[in-house]
Amino acid sequence: MLLTRRSLLLAASAAPVAATFGGAHAQAGWQPTREVEFVVPFGVGGGADLLARVIHKIIVEDKLVPVPIALNNRPGGGGATGIGYVSARKAADPHTIILVNGTTQITPILNPAAKTLSEVRPVMNVMLDDFLLFVRGDAPWKDAKAFVADAKTKPPKSLAFATGGTTDVMAITIFSKATGVEYNALNFNSGGEALTQLLGGHVQACMGNPLEFMGHLQSKAVRALGVFREQRFTALPDVPTMKEQGIQTPAFQMWRGMATPKGTPDAPAKYWEGVFAKVVAAPAFKAYIAENIASEAPIPGDAFVKFLADQEKLYRDLLGKPA
């Protein structure tokens, strides 16, 4: 679907226009004047919600904005419900901020009726989550190379992966394309369920984010065979990258960032960019990233828009839904 990308670019190109237009009001910088609504398009208690609550707590405790800020969970439809609420009720309202992530970007690719990133103005990416290939601790494969070599000796789809969502499936697609081997993918509700299936030996491998697997990795109940990134992880120096092992995969990470409603003028967008820059620099945020074995990745404003356009292209490619 062209719409999403085009409107993203439009949002980027429209920004200078909006700036000259609203310039008279926003010379000395914009400040929120009433309560800010922090829309979380995901359910209470999930990973995305947890991140939102951490950001919220930092903004409140470090007094980064002069007004109260209220969390509002609007879960459903892979982010489309919450963003639909924003575009219907909070259009161009700079007193609204929204948490967005890779899932929100994937939703409209698979379900064109849902509109997500086309309805917001991306402000800043805050972190990236990595994908690792996990097998059970007692599995015969010591690295991804051995895993692939073994898979090639068997009939196609002999090895099965458990996944916790579409993003994990995309990682399998990348891996499958790079290695020329077909795998079975069994989808579960969450990374935790996928891990349980791996531990039970019902599947041979998992693609997943480090978070859910970390405790089991440390106790050697599972083994990580490789990671989809350019350099090795500082937190996990023993896990080789796919490229090191001769598996030519692009870097694949899931992003999480913040946005304001579509049509937010430049001044408030800049203001929020400043606030989020302080959030990602806060010790509490760095601690959160470290606990989650994620990567700090503040990408502000236009660079974020460009980053998202690249990701969109990659996702469409992987999901077989060219724009």
Partner: peptide, 19 residues
């Protein structure tokens, strides 16, 4: 949304039916 494919069915293009 069908868990195995990630694609919605019987949602009739209504976002609130995706779940």
């Amino acid at each position: 949304i069908d868990q195995q494919t990630g694609v919605a069915r019987f949602a009739f293009d209504r976002v609130w039916l995706l779940d």
